[in-house]
Design a protein around this nucleic acid. Structure first.
Lengths: 343, 343
DNA sequence: TGACTTTTTGCAATCGATTGCAATATACAT
DNA sequence: ATGTATATTGCAATCGATTGCAAAAAGTCA
């Protein structure tokens, strides 16, 4: 049953007295020149007045292109994904594509189930924000000839394009900021090390500390969540290294660090300075306002969509890694370190 | 060109020596009984081993059902939509449906363009989080026979089902909380009055104040954003009504109210108590932690998806309005009102 | 064995748009 | 007028799954 009032090629053909193939050609800018000018104009006019819009499903079946892109997120509720998704949706829309969003969690098996589902919808490509290192989801897509782009995280193999923030630079900015404010004993609450962000930020932290010839104290969180940050932060603080600052691998972990400090009766930044990562919404409003590393998430989403569209068009499997420059945002959670015993 | 390795009915038919129609029936639980048992089993086995998954595009073209649902959001970046979208995606996934998300903004013309696009994708239904009062988007969908459900906001006509929070109750909770803490001079930063949330919350505020025989001071914000809250908050404070508390129509407006107070050198809750609405993520961490009205956004999204799926199945146009109970969350932005001159 | 059910299977059309190929029409040259 | 090139148009197959109808096969009963 045809949906109410939706015009088909056949109707236009009937109304103009030509064959559907002629109508199809007349309405396709690429093929319009194959049709006599007056006829094409007549067809365009009728199509216009009937409000004709091509049925994408039929087009998709015939051509194999659906104008749909799958977007796999590990957790929609995580505030960093909203601007990424927004950027993706925007960039896709300008090229006539639409995103199908899947909140696929962190388990590989479930992610693959979602990919298969999207594959059945015949999406033209996939944007993954989910990958952990050496993920099998990427291979799964690639095996099936599906273009893939990674966003926010990337894998340590050169199979597909990606767009991420310069995590190493971000950590250097954070550490340099603290060091230039007199901090020397600095700890790091790292993210899960099976994600590129977790690993690269940890490495970036270590290298930045080494550069200043300082020892790196590190504890790993199991998840990028506020709750996940509490235990490692407590561990760092309790390790009697007398830390004066903590760099967290993302803002949520920084919030968990605040929680841990509160439990231990420590104050920020008076006792310990804290730096986050991401500059997600509202962290400027919490108390104290969070010093953090700003990442252009929206631009990241746009870039991911553009990379994917390019690959969909060209299908040359050309791998490209875009790295965005992060920016240090200084707020109230960091303060200069006063010498232990003021005069 | 067929995507690498994707099995079709025809291949299974060839492999089992039967006609595609038989394969189709054997794999459809509804029709399996029309096929001899042994044959059906053989087919199922082959289908399994070839990893057959029906091409949704073909099914969609033939049956007119795409298993896709359009979701129209006014602003993905707004934190309240993340949990709503998450709930929608989850509830849809359990029934084999997927959401196509459109960040459609607030302009009716653009929203309609997105609807048309989704219509071309032959979505089975639409979830709108965008409606303003007496919106033409709803009519546009209805005219085309597309099932629609409204989420978070609703329209003042009884055309389609909706799921919203009890805005009036929410405001009553807020006002009662303030009054029971000794506040008498209470203002309201309302949302745009062309949205149901804006209007209903304003009315709820007025009624709750009237119930206590108190005068209602109200200023309207042009948008539900932090920036949009500043001007009306300043206006309220400047109106020399000596307000002791402000109820904002949502959390972002409450944050704008904080901004305005900061500009004016006022402190919260010492000088003025503030109540928000939504309990979006992180408002428990800002300074002072925001007293607000919690809404089950995730449940709201799930409910919307379920309402829509029901309508898609039944197509009886039965209109249903679900109203969720909000909850008062008391935090640090509200405090008892001390008499102006303490002893 | 023949008549009649019931079960199982295949045929072919269909959804709507696209496209290679062939057919017709028109223009141009000789 | 004839031939050749070019511009238009139509035909029919195709993408993959579904489904009404008819044909074939199997089962039942007298």
């Amino acid at each position: 049953m045809n949906r109410v009032g939706l015009t088909t090629l056949k109707q236009i053909a009937a109304a103009t007295g030509v064959h559907t193939s002629t109508v199809s050609r007349a309405l396709d800018p690429q093929k319009r020149h194959l049709v006599a000018n007056d006829v094409a104009e007549r067809i365009a006019h009728v199509a216009q007045s009937l409000g004709y819009q091509p049925n994408r499903v039929a087009t998709s079946l015939r051509t194999g292109r659906s104008q749909l892109v799958g977007v796999l997120l590990p957790d929609i509720a995580n505030p960093v994904f909203a601007p990424i998704l927004s950027g993706i949706a925007e960039a896709l829309a300008t090229e006539g594509y639409s995103p199908i969003v899947a909140d696929a969690g962190n388990e590989s098996a479930q992610q693959i189930a979602f990919v298969d589902n999207l594959l059945n919808q015949r999406v033209d490509g996939m944007i993954l924000a989910t990958v952990s290192r050496d993920d099998d989801v990427v291979g799964h897509c690639l095996d099936r000839g599906l273009p893939v782009v990674l966003v926010n995280r990337f894998e340590f193999r050169d199979r597909v394009s990606s767009i991420v923030s310069d995590d190493e630079l971000g950590m250097r900015l954070a550490v340099d900021h603290l060091v230039s404010n007199g901090h020397r004993r600095i700890g790091h609450v790292s993210g899960p090390l099976d994600t590129s962000t977790g690993l690269l930020r940890r490495d970036g932290f270590s290298r930045a500390m080494a550069h200043h010839a300082l020892p790196a104290h590190i504890e790993e969180a199991s998840h990028f969540t506020r709750e996940g940050g509490v235990a490692p932060a407590r561990a760092l603080i309790g390790a009697n290294a007398a830390l004066t600052a903590i760099v967290a691998a993302n803002d949520l972990l920084a919030l968990g660090t605040f929680d841990a400090m509160r439990m231990l009766g420590l104050r920020c930044p008076d006792d310990i300075s804290v730096v986050g990562h991401n500059d997600m919404p509202l962290v400027d409003l919490i108390s104290p306002p969070l010093t953090t590393i700003r990442i252009g998430h929206r631009e990241m989403g746009q870039g991911a969509a553009r990379l994917l569209l390019k690959e969909i068009e060209a299908r040359d499997g050309r791998v490209q890694h875009v790295i965005l420059q992060p920016e240090l945002i200084v707020r109230g959670s960091t303060a200069p370190w006063r010498t232990p015993d003021p005069p």
